[in-house]
Design a binder for these strands. Sequence first.
RNA 1: GUCCCGUUCGUCUAGUGGUUUAGGACACCGCCCUUUCACGGCGGCAACACCGGUUCAAAUCCGGUACGGGAUGCCA
Length: 460
Amino acid sequence: MNVVTRFAPSPTGYLHIGGARTALFNWLFARHHAGTYLLRIEDTDKARSTDDAIAAIYDGLQWLGLAGDQPAVSQSAQSARHVEVANALVAAGAAYQCFLSAEELTSIREASKNSGDTVRSPWRDRGPSEAQLGKSFVVRMKMPSDGSTTIKDAVQGNVTVQNKVLDDMVILRADGTPTYMLAVVVDDHDMGITHVIRGDDHLNNAFRQYMVYKSMGWQEPVFAHIPLIHGSDGTKLSKRHGALSVGAYRDMGFLSDAMFSYLLRLGWSSGDKDIISRDNAVRLFDLDRIGKSPARFDNDKLRDINANYIKQMDSHSLFELIAKHFTASSDAAQQRILYMLPLLKERAKTHLDIAESVSYLIVDGPIDMDADAAVLLTNETKDILLDLNKALTFAKWDLEGLKVVINTFLEEKDLKMRDIGLPLRAAITGKKQSPSIIEIMVALGRSETNTRLQMACKLL
RNA sequence: GUCCCGUUCGUCUAGUGGUUUAGGACACCGCCCUUUCACGGCGGCAACACCGGUUCAAAUCCGGUACGGGAUGCCA
């Protein structure tokens, strides 16, 4: 079978984490089966849909490498077709016109809540001859009142509901526009979707939609309802959990591949593997490896995965990433950063961590001194550092050369590296923490190191 | 209320009736490495929601309870 999947977001906001993972699973399943992955914008609710949201969704998908194989279909553009199907459904007796007023509906709902019975419109049993001409109506599906329906869900297994609990959903609004419940079925059918992979908040809807397939004599797709992603406290992901949009994670410095890898492992697994490349994911992905319980979003784990990807990056790619976040004052500064990058990336969770920590490599001449670093430079330590600076005059300026000179200096002064390491770092970087200070001296070069030691150690 | 789904360390998960003293990863703690912070190495803490049943044997199968989630919209 030629597999066709789709990701069908409603454009009411940015692409959020949950949507991104749904897109990912659809993309992966299609790729695994050498099928097609399509995009559809579910904008049947015109009031809530915006162009900005559509752009943001495309942007997020693009970043994750989950753009559709064909231009996205706009659901609202298909409304004539949806209406046509609705009319066919009415003609076949599978749907009916309902003239219930808002008040009547409310009281029926009220009554059904008390009795436990499903909401039913009296109009489902009235013939077309009783239609109230000129009055507005909606079109509802006529759900069977007995028997049961079983859906073989690829993730949830066999799920059965009694048909009598299915409500007569509205498929055409009073203004004649189609609802999502109808549009989703018609579009999935027309687009030849073979596998509907979506959030399990749609599991109940699947039974209602199933009736449309049956009434139209259409083959229903394979359903795969995947559990939603929850926040760290186990509740539905919402604003108070912090960032939700894919774009926000990109802005926080997370790599596309890391996000891809993390999202993949949220609810899906392949043995013990934690970090899975795109290629391997395509090769390994399968619906029956998707878990049935909701996963919580864990920022620490994401950061760890991202750190792994950062470590694997080559220096030049990494430099391009971080270079957007500062302006190097000279070519020399660029060379210093390139030299230090292998060391810097070992200690970073995101490339932003690196960009924020290299101020001492960017500038030439005097550097900004952090307060906690400044206190390490007492008059006593300044004297020692100035002496060291003199001793450095004839050092061979590479890692080994510097080590030799510094060790000799320490022996002569009867000191240990721990006695001068911190002040030396403070004087040269203006910081209390950094990678190996000797490596930094190598990166900075002789004259820049001398300058900084002299500037920082001027006695007051 | 009714219907549907779920429940293994704090978190993501491995586990598909005996291979399990329930494994890995993140987080946390300790030790080592070390000029600092990290990284890395080693070690530690820590889970089958509960109650019954089936079976020689159950985290795994069945039933119930509890808790969580979803649906019950002229939203998607």
